[in-house]
Nucleic acid binder design. Structure first.
Length: 573
DNA sequence: GCCGTTTTCGGCCCGACTGTTTTCAGTCG
């Protein structure tokens, strides 16, 4: 059993204990779940190497939880969990995904109405049965229906942050199979779309049947849609479909192009081929019977008289016209970043120390990292006040004297108050290297009020960067209502930098907004919003989003050296 | 159930918001 599954069960136990009004234990299980997720190696492996001691060394895991984890590793089951589950046998994963529904309400819905699933909940809400329960009313009924509608809209798609690591893992397994020469991930994952419908993987192999055998026997496979010599399709235990196609080497480039899409991009390419009296399909580019290209994507584009178009641009949203005109942007590369400007540490809600974050950033090849812990009005995180920020600055000064090859910048993720003022005094902000400002409360202001509020914050002379400008959480929370065009204008006017938050749940600004900002000449940074050392690799998702938004290296300030970066911030002196 | 430069027992992040209430319970971050 892997870490993600163990963490999921720990979380469910927390919810089930919450339902029983058990005190404190739920928080303990939650904490353990979080810690297990943050591990960089499987718990089973830790146990193999260091026994029970190793499991108990995980922060938040003591003797009791360690024993439960061991039971899960060894048997794949946990009687304690199953007993709890029996008391309230409901579809927790999906019910808790509904915004505003927590353990107590789910329990009440089950106790009074026997509701176990989202479908039963929707039916009861539509029939007006829920409003009569104690502590429920018409508004909560409406809120539940709205939450279900949102859930339905997003179901069947997977965030890139879930799909990409999983598919890369599968890609790695396929590469190791005997006879396999090439493997490539195609489809919307290759285009780095923020959500993914299903995964497409292409393989060149001298033994196609062996590839298919390995695929359908993977432990994650719960359903085999079909298995053939060149194409197989399976469903994984997380609900995601994976299609694998074995293609001929001479067609690999054409197939990669065809299956990478987007469909609209492919159609536009075939139209260009037609105009040139050529034929383009998944096997190659043809003039009559003669094959002109097919081995690589580059030669396919070349045969059509086009420069190579990066996958992230292939949405038929102007990239083909730009390619014809020789005006494709020279996109930022995946190794162009020199710094990360939004990271949290164990001074607030992060789990690693400043030094650990800095060391990991250095290991990843960065030259600088800003520490931007939350500020005081975000009470749940133990947000910093002016005094705590001063203390942190002193600690960072000391670390900078000690560390080589990485510079730590003093920063903060400063809360924007309801009226657009900031919750940290200006004289303290002036001492920080990097001030990020962000909305964390009052999400439901009107469009007008929210826009005015954020712009007012951007007008603060110390506010360098607007963090996650729209506040959305992919498939979890809609962005707050804000006029992004006005925000972009204000960014231009005030010299405030807009962030591309690369945390996979956020990707905020999103690709379309990045493109607007780039067109307006507004400068951007790409950050991870890391809350532990593992999150620092999320820069990849931010860069992908930047590329999808047509951003060049010159549009992104943290491609600059430290000195140049600091000079480009608006309060640089 | 976890944890200890206040404690091996007795604490456990806490304020805002919402919708239900008439003083509070549940959820969220």
């Amino acid at each position: 059993m892997n870490n993600a599954e163990i963490a999921r069960i720990m979380r469910e136990i927390a919810i089930l204990l919450d339902m029983e009004e058990v005190q404190f234990k739920p928080r303990a299980y939650e904490k353990a779940a979080y810690a297990i997720e943050a591990l960089d190696q499987p718990v089973a492996e830790m146990y193999r190497q260091g026994g029970m001691k190793a499991i108990e060394s995980i922060p938040g895991v003591g003797k009791n939880i360690a024993e439960k984890i061991l039971t899960l590793i060894e048997t794949g089951r946990l009687p304690y969990y199953e007993d709890l589950k029996q008391k309230t046998p409901v579809d927790l994963a999906n019910l808790t995904a509904i915004e505003g529904l927590g353990p107590k309400m789910i329990k009440a819905l089950y106790d009074h109405l026997g509701i176990k699933t989202v479908e039963e909940l929707e039916k009861a809400a539509q029939e007006g049965k829920i409003r009569h329960l104690p502590h429920f009313g018409e508004k909560s009924e409406q809120k539940i229906l709205k939450g279900i509608a949102f859930l339905k809209k997003s179901s069947g798609r997977f965030p890139l942050g879930v799909a990409l690591p999983l598919v890369l893992e599968i890609e790695g397994r396929l590469q190791k199979i005997k006879g396999v020469k090439q493997v490539a991930v195609a489809g919307s994952i290759r285009r780095r779309k923020e959500t993914i419908g299903d995964a497409d993987i292409l393989v060149v192999s001298s033994q196609p049947d062996l590839v298919m055998d390995v695929l359908v026997k993977m432990p994650e496979v719960v359903l085999i849609h079909g298995k053939g010599h060149t194409k197989s399709s399976v469903k994984l235990n997380n609900g995601m479909d994976v299609d694998v196609r074995v293609v001929e080497e001479q067609s690999f480039g054409a197939a990669l192009n065809y299956f990478t899409g987007s469909k609209d991009h492919d159609i536009a390419l075939r139209r260009i081929a037609q105009e040139k009296n050529l034929k383009l399909n998944e096997y190659g580019v043809y003039r009559g019977e003669k094959v002109l290209a097919g081995v690589t994507e580059a030669e396919v584009y070349e045969a059509l008289g086009l420069p190579y178009i990066p996958p992230e641009l292939r949405e038929n949203s102007g990239e083909i016209e730009a390619a014809i005109a020789g005006k494709l942007p020279d996109l930022i590369d995946y190794d162009d970043l020199k710094g990360d400007l939004q990271t949290q540490t164990n001074w607030t809600d992060g789990s690693n120390s400043i030094e650990e974050m800095a060391q990991e950033a250095k290991r990843l090849g960065l030259e600088y990292i800003a520490i931007t812990d939350h500020t005081k009005s975000l009470a749940m995180t133990g947000g910093s006040d002016e005094k705590k920020l001063q203390q942190q600055m002193a600690v960072i000064d000391e670390l900078n004297k000690k560390l080589r090859g990485i510079t730590i910048l003093k920063g903060a993720e400063v809360n924007i108050n309801k009226d657009g003022t900031l919750d940290i005094a200006d004289d303290t902000l002036a001492k920080l290297d990097v001030v990020g400002v962000a909305v964390h409360s009052h999400f439901s202001l009107s469009r007008e009020d929210m826009t005015r509020r954020v712009i007012r914050a951007m007008e603060n002379p110390h506010a360098d960067i607007l963090f996650h400008p729209t506040g959305r959480l992919i498939q979890k929370r809609e962005p707050y209502d804000i006029d992004i065009d006005e925000v972009i204008k204000a960014a231009k006017r005030t010299g405030t930098v807009l962030e591309i938050d690369g945390y996979p749940d956020r990707l905020d600004l999103k690709d379309e907004h990045v493109r607007k900002a780039v067109e307006a000449g507004v400068k951007l940074v790409i950050d991870t919003d890391a809350h532990n050392v593992n999150h620092l690799s999320f820069l990849h998702y931010g860069i992908a989003t930047a590329r999808r938004g047509w951003a060049k290296k010159s549009d992104i300030l943290n491609t600059k050296s430290l000195k140049e970066f600091i000079k480009s911030l608006k309060d640089a002196r």
